[in-house]
Structures are given as C-alpha cells and as structure tokens.
Amino acid sequence: MVLLSKNEIETVMSTLNEEQIYFLQHRTKQKKKSRWLQTLANYKGFDINEKMSDQEIEEKLDDWILVDIKDGGYQKRPHKCDCGQALRFQYIIRNKAQDAVRYLGENCFENYLSLPASVIKDVKKGLYSIDLERDEILVKYKKNLFYPLDKYMHLPLPQDLLDQYELGLPLSDNQINLVERIHTRYEEEKKLASLFQRLTIEQQQFVSKLNQEDRRELLLSIEDGFAESFLYIEDLSEFNEALHRQIQLNLPLLERQKQTIEEWRLTKKREAALHALSPEQQKFILSFGKEEQTSLLDQIHKPLYFSYESIENLLLDDTIKKQVELKLPLLKEQIYQIQLAQNKRDKVEV
C-alpha cells in the first residue's frame, strides 16, 4: 500500500463524523510524537521501556520535541519555514527548556537538530509508517472492512484501540495482529493457570518461585502428564539444591536442565572410558586438544577402522601409526589421510 493523496484522504474524511476525524488526527499526531521521542531517546542512550508515558520520556530528554508535521498536499506549498522557504511539509518542534517553537522545512529540520542522517532516516521511516496506517484505516472504512472485535472484548486491550472500535473505525492490520497476540497470550495464561491447579501444594510453592519464562516452560511440559518427562539421575551431588528439590517433587526438568544433565552424563562416560585405558593410551589421548579428546573418547567402544599391520608400510605421520598401534580410534581427518595414502600406494603398485 502507498500513501493516499491529500484529495483521497479528504474524500474519505468527509464521510466521517467529527469524533472520528478528531480521533484519527489526534491519534496520528500522538503516534508521531511517540515515535520521535523513542527514536531520540534511543539515540541519546536513555533507558526507556514500553510502560513509560510520552511525558516521562519527554522530561528525560529535555530537548527539541516534535509537535506536528503538516502536509500541504501534492504540488502545494502553503506552509513556511522559519528561513522563509515555502513548504509542503512543515515540521513543528518545541523546546520546553528554551520556551521556543520552530517551524522548519525538511533541510532546516535536519540541520537544526544536528542529528546523524541515520537517525533522521529512522524518524522519517517511522512517521511514514504512521501515515500509512492512518490511510489503511481510511481505506478499510471506505470498503466497510471491520474486524469482529466484539469477540475479544474480554481481553485486556489498549484503551485507544477500544476507543477506535467504539467510534466505528476499522482496525489496521498491525492492530489486528496485536489483538490476536493478546488473545493467544490470554488463552495460554488460562491454560497455565489450569495446569498449575493440577499440582500439589508443595509443587505449586516450588513452581511459584521460578521466573516467568521457566514457570511457563515447566507448566506446559506437564500438559499431557509429567511422569514420562521425569529424568532419573544416578548422582545428584554435583547439582544445586533447587534441582534436587525439583526432582524430589517429581516435576519435569527444563530443556536447559536436561541439556546440562546430558552433558554431565557424557562427561562422566568419557571419564570412565579414559580411566579404562592403559596409562600409555591415556597419555596419548590427553596429548590432543579438548575437542579431539572428546571425539576420540566417544568412539572408544566402537570397532576400529584399521589394524596396525594394514597401515604399517604407508607413508603416514608417526602419530597416526602410533594411535593405530595403541588400538585407539581415529579422527575423521586421520582416516582421510590413511585413505589418501592407500590410494597412492595402490596407484604405484598398478
């Protein structure tokens, strides 16, 4: 979708009532101001969050704030820059500390604020998307395309979205996506609450102490019954008290916990494999790097590729020959070297 022309906007606007017109104009202006504040705050490195109001962000900035952008229409220049130039687009900015207001064109706007081109680009991109959403609402109104929000009135929806619906204005695609995300989250919260009630008092007390993300993962994992999710661990001495308690309560483990335990088991298995070797074999394997040691120990009980007699006369590195002589597994690149040496020998013999 592209922006509507000023005439197209005015044509659809003329079919709206005064409340609808005011809402759209006020909403567009507020969203532009919010986008400006967020972009400027991010550029200046201020710590802001979605719960902060525009006024709170504005107080932090103490800087030039975008008040409005006026569009005179295609091929029209009814506005004036402070420098005297006739304008189609007029940027109105205000500085509370200096008690000053400036009316600027695009070039003066960029130069006056002394912001990097990338920041100005982000501002313009954001403002364009806000105008695009306004036009989308107007087009949907003209085509009578209304989302059935009445089915979701039980959800904790943003007030401005409810106001828009009550005024008889359609929702943009972004707003519809927001409603559906809120609905999905609401349904999941209901499911989580139901799953939580299935737990014993002791299990509930434990789960309540988890952070939100971990609590969600654990509860969802018991949806189809958690007995099969339980992992038996032979030795708990190396794990923290919380994990001990979780297992004692027969609660399933989180994926990161399962991964930690699996890595621990592999480490124990590799240690056992290493200790089962002769001192000479152990010393030889420990001469490799950590990753190579892991690869070799994982293959200890697998059949060997080559016997010493089959490679004894090949042109190979002494390390590989010694490794085969000690009846130790080989790395992939070592096997490749042996195969190359065999091919060379076979060609010579032919």
Rank of each mutant, 00 (worst) to 15 (best):
M1Y: 10
L3A: 11
L4T: 08
S5M: 04
E10S: 14
T15D: 01
T15G: 00
L16C: 03
L16Q: 08
L16P: 04
I21V: 14
I21L: 01
Q25N: 15
Q30H: 10
R35L: 10
A41S: 13
D47A: 11
I48E: 10
S53L: 11
Q55Y: 09
Q55G: 02
E56C: 00
E58F: 00
K60P: 00
L61E: 06
D71A: 05
C81A: 05
C81S: 12
L87G: 07
L87D: 04
R94L: 04
D99T: 09
A100Y: 14
R102T: 07
Y103C: 00
Y103A: 00
N107Y: 01
E110A: 13
L113Q: 10
L113H: 08
A117C: 01
V119E: 13
D122E: 15
K124E: 13
K125Y: 03
Y128T: 12
S129D: 12
S129A: 14
I130E: 09
E133L: 07
Y141Q: 03
K142N: 11
F146A: 00
Y147G: 06
P148R: 05
L157S: 03
Q159T: 07
D160G: 00
D160T: 09
L161D: 06
P170G: 06
P170W: 12
L171I: 06
D173Q: 14
Q175L: 02
L178C: 02
V179Q: 04
V179A: 04
E180K: 15
E180F: 01
E180N: 13
R181A: 11
T184E: 15
Y186D: 12
Y186A: 14
A193N: 10
F196S: 07
I201G: 00
F206A: 03
L210A: 02
Q212K: 13
Q212I: 03
E213V: 07
D214Y: 09
R215W: 00
E223G: 01
G225N: 03
D235F: 02
L236W: 09
L236A: 05
H244E: 05
H244S: 06
Q246I: 05
N250D: 14
N250W: 08
L251M: 08
L254M: 03
E255P: 04
Q257Y: 01
I261L: 13
R265H: 13
T267F: 01
T267S: 12
K268L: 09
E271T: 07
A272P: 00
A276I: 01
E280W: 05
I285K: 06
L286Y: 01
L286K: 13
L286R: 12
S287G: 10
F288K: 11
Q293S: 03
Q293G: 06
T294V: 06
T294A: 14
Q299L: 14
Q299F: 04
K302H: 12
P303F: 07
L304H: 09
Y305L: 13
Y305K: 15
F306D: 00
E309G: 04
L316D: 02
L316A: 07
K321W: 11
V324G: 03
L330A: 03
E333D: 11
Q334R: 01
Q334T: 05
Q337L: 10
A341S: 09
V348N: 11
E349F: 10
